[in-house]
């Protein structure tokens, strides 16, 4: 059971990151029914900016505790990503708010490409090694000395995610801005008539989503120890799948979807090899038996299929329950 527990811990960590990114998709979708395809790139920019700051601080030998260095990185990344989010909305989405759905989706793809290649010019074409400022320390979860462990980085990521989710929930359900956001999501015209500046509210939604994305970027960089100008694409797509799984437009859904997807992926990657291990059927075929006897792993699907799970989840959810786990029926605006 220890592998299982370990995969759950890894899945929860990964899932917390997905959840934070998924929140960015779901907030924007909730308010203007737009898939902000470039959100993954915002996350990437966050990781990159923090990378530069952390490298600079480490290089300068700043007398700061490791956690403070990472926090400095994050604090620098947040305003940058907020600005990116704001700019995306202002330049590419606002003019198309009344256009057919295809149009903003295509500008979003364009922006995604622009951001990726700008990042490539500014930083690097190659993967950047994230400085491991925080010494990874593993704690045993069970009494078994060879059992599942959780690292301090994982704990930090999970705690940070919980804090962010709590903060966002408070913002949306307890503040005036939150009321304005929810009103705008319900009906833009009416919200406008009630004196809400909907342009401001929508812009702020992008800003908040950008801020969340930047933190997620720092988490990913720190967790995997690597940053790359294309890292946002797959991460964004998975987070979007998570948002759809939970019910797009629904905050709790994005959190649940993120955690679930993280766990599905971790368990999938951990077990798909065992489940599809053909050597269990070695008695069926002599050739197979010979291959297995030679010590070869004859596995139909190995863990290199890890990235497929998110897409399969996405397709299955969209086909069988497009409203997601917690979502309302998605009304068709088109």
């Amino acid at each position: 059971m220890d592998i299982f527990l370990q995969q759950i811990i890894n899945g929860l960590t990964l899932g917390s990151v997905y959840a934070i990114v998924a929140l960015g998709y779901t907030m924007v979708y909730g308010i203007i029914q737009l898939i902000n395809f470039a959100h993954g790139e915002v996350v990437m920019i966050g990781a990159m900016v923090a990378y530069s700051v952390i490298v600079a601080l480490v290089g300068a030998g700043a007398p700061l505790p490791p956690l403070a260095i990472v926090l400095c990185g994050a604090l620098a990344a947040i305003p940058v990503c907020m600005a990116v989010g704001f700019t995306l909305e202002r330049v590419a989405y606002r003019p198309l708010r009344r256009a057919p759905r295809l149009a903003p989706l295509i500008t979003a793809i364009g922006l995604s490409i622009i951001l990726q290649h700008l990042a490539m010019i500014v930083w690097s074409r190659n993967p950047l090694p994230y400085p491991q400022v925080i010494q990874s320390v593993s704690y045993h979860v069970t009494g078994n000395p060879n059992g599942a462990t959780i690292t301090n980085v994982q704990i930090a990521i999970i705690c940070m995610s919980v804090l962010l989710m709590a903060g966002l929930t408070t913002l949306v359900y307890r503040t005036k801005l939150g009321i304005a956001m929810r009103a705008t999501a319900q009906n833009q015209q009416v919200a406008g008539l009630m004196g809400i500046d909907i342009n401001k509210v929508i812009a702020l939604t992008f800003v908040i989503a950008g801020g969340l994305g930047s933190v997620a970027g720092v988490m990913v960089g720190t967790y995997y120890g690597i940053a790359h100008y294309q890292m946002g694409f797959l991460l964004g797509l998975k987070a979007f799948s998570a948002a759809v799984l939970g019910g797009i437009g629904n905050l709790a859904g994005a959190m649940l979807g993120g955690l679930l997807l993280g766990i599905i992926e971790a368990l999938g990657a951990g077990y798909v090899g065992d489940i599809t291990d053909l050597c269990r059927f070695a008695s069926w075929s002599d050739a197979l038996a010979a291959r297995c006897a030679s010590g070869e792993h004859v596995v139909l699907f190995g863990s290199n299929y890890q990235d497929v799970f998110a897409f399969i989840v996405l397709i299955v959810v969209l086909v069988f329950r497009p409203s997601g786990l917690l979502g309302e029926r998605v009304s068709d605006r088109a």
Partner: peptide, 15 residues
Amino acid sequence: LRGDYLAIVTLGFGE
């Protein structure tokens, strides 16, 4: 599926 969802699903399929 509605247009934008279809776009994402086809993207996933391509991957």
